[in-house]
Design a protein around this nucleic acid. Structure first.
Lengths: 225, 225
DNA sequence: GTCTATAATCCGATAGAC
DNA sequence: GTCTATCGGATTATAGAC
C-alpha cells in the first residue's frame, strides 16, 4: 500500500460501491436488496439514497466508475495501433488484442475489484433489463463503432454481418473466460486446480483468433450472393 | 362427446411452466414474481404452490421439463458417432456438432418454446445462484463426462485443461449466439436485420471449430519444461 | 383443482432528529 | 453525513371455502 496524496471524499460512498459491485455480480440487481448492500458496506440503509438518490442510480454509478476508464483504454490502444499502421489497415490480431486484452487486464486485477466488475459486466451484457441495456449501449457506442470499423477495414473480403457475429461470439467466449471454468470442472466431477491468471490471456487469444480466422461458413445451395 | 369451442387451453400446470420459462428468461428468477407468472398464465396465484409447492420447485420444474430430453439427444448423437467410428476416436468436428448442434436445434424451435428455454439456460449458466447451479451440475454431469472424454481421445496431443477451457469458450460463444446479436447492432448504431435462423448453425460451427483447432497458446519464457 | 383472503416478511424510499 | 423509525407497497406462502 502506497501513501495516497488525498483521501477519497467519502469513504462510505466507496464502500457502498464496492459492496454493490460484488453483490450485484453474485445475486443480480433484483436479487440484491439495499439492506444487503449497506449491511455488507457497514453503512446505514439511508446512506444509499443520500449518496446516490435511488437504487437505479446506484447501479449506474457502479458501472460508470469503471466503464469509462476501460473504454478509454481500449480507444487509446486502437489509436496507437492505427498511428503505427500509418494509413494501412491494422492487423486483425492486434485489434482483437486491443479490445479483449484490455478487458482481461482489468479482469486480472482482483485486488481492486477489477475482476468483480468484469464478471458483473459479463453477466449484465445479456440481461434484458431495459434501462441497464440503454445505459450500456450508450457507453459502448463509440468503442463498438471504432473497433468494428477497424475490423471491417482489416478484413475487406469478409461480409460485415459475418464480422459482427464473430465479434459477438468472441464477446461470449471472453464472458465465460472471465466467469471462470469452475462449472466445467464441477459438472465433469473433476477437482478444479487454481488457474494461473497470466495464462488466461494467451489461452483466450489463441481461441479468439482461431475463431475469427476460421473459413467462412457454407450456407448451402441457397446462398448465391 | 363435446366439441371444444372453449379455451384450447392446455393444463394450468403447463401454462404456468410456459409463462415462467419466458418470464424467467426475460427478467431473471428474482425479477419474476409469482403474481407476474400466474397473471401471464391466466391462473390463480395459489396455483403455483398447489402444482409445484414453491417458487424454487417451479424453477427446477421449468428446467427439468426440457433438460432431460436435450441431454438424452446429445448422448444419443454421441453414441451414434462412436458406433460409426468403431473403436477409433471420433473426429473433433463431429463431437462439437453433436453437442452444440443439438442445442441449436432446440434453440431453432421458437414455436414450442425451445428458443425461450435455450436463452434461459444460457442466461442461467453463469448465474452464481446456489441451488440452480447445483441442480444444473447434476443434470450436466453425464453429458459433460462423455463429451469431454470423447474430446480427450480425439485430441491426444492437446493438454486436457486446454481442451476444457476451449470447451468452456465454445459454451460462451453458443450462449451469445442464442441470446442474439441485437446488442451489437444496437451499440454500433446500425439497424438489426432479422437473421435467417438456418444460418446460425453453420455460422457458429465455423467459429467454434476454428477456435478449437487454433494453435496452442504460448505461455511465454517461463515455461521451459 | 380453483379461488379468496390473509399472514408474515421484505422491499425501496423518505422524514426528521442529531 | 449518519442515524432511527416508519410508510406504502410488494413479495412468498398458506389457510380454508367451494
Amino acid at each position: 500500500m502506497s501513501t495516497e496524496p488525498h483521501l477519497p471524499q467519502s469513504e462510505t460512498r466507496d464502500r457502498i460501491l464496492d459492496a454493490a459491485e460484488r453483490l450485484f455480480m453474485e445475486h443480480g440487481f433484483e436479487g440484491t436488496s439495499m439492506r444487503l448492500i449497506t449491511g455488507a458496506a457497514n453503512a446505514n440503509l439511508a446512506a444509499v439514497n443520500y449518496h446516490f438518490g435511488s437504487k437505479d442510480a446506484l447501479i449506474q454509478a457502479v458501472f460508470r466508475r469503471r466503464m469509462t476508464a476501460l473504454n478509454e483504454a481500449r480507444l487509446a490502444a486502437l489509436d496507437r495501433l492505427e498511428a503505427e499502421a500509418g494509413g494501412e489497415a491494422v492487423k486483425p490480431s492486434r485489434i482483437v488484442e486491443a479490445f479483449f486484452g484490455t478487458a482481461l487486464e482489468l479482469a486480472a486485477d482482483a485486488e481492486h475489484g477489477g475482476n468483480t466488475f468484469m464478471r458483473l459486466l459479463s453477466r449484465t451484457y445479456n440481461e434484458p433489463n431495459a434501462f441497464v441495456r440503454q445505459f450500456l449501449a450508450e457507453e459502448y457506442a463509440e468503442v463498438m463503432d471504432r473497433f468494428l470499423g477497424a475490423l471491417f477495414r482489416a478484413l475487406p473480403g469478409v461480409p460485415r454481418d459475418e464480422i459482427m457475429w464473430r465479434f459477438h461470439y468472441m464477446m461470449g467466449a471472453m464472458s465465460f473466460a472471465i466467469a471462470g471454468i469452475e462449472s466445467v470442472y464441477a459438472t465433469a466431477g473433476l477437482p478444479c486446480t487454481e488457474e494461473e491468471p497470466s495464462r488466461m490471456r494467451p489461452r483466450l487469444m489463441s481461441f479468439l483468433l482461431g475463431g475469427l480466422r476460421a473459413p467462412l461458413p457454407d450456407f448451402g445451395a441457397a446462398a448465391t450472393d
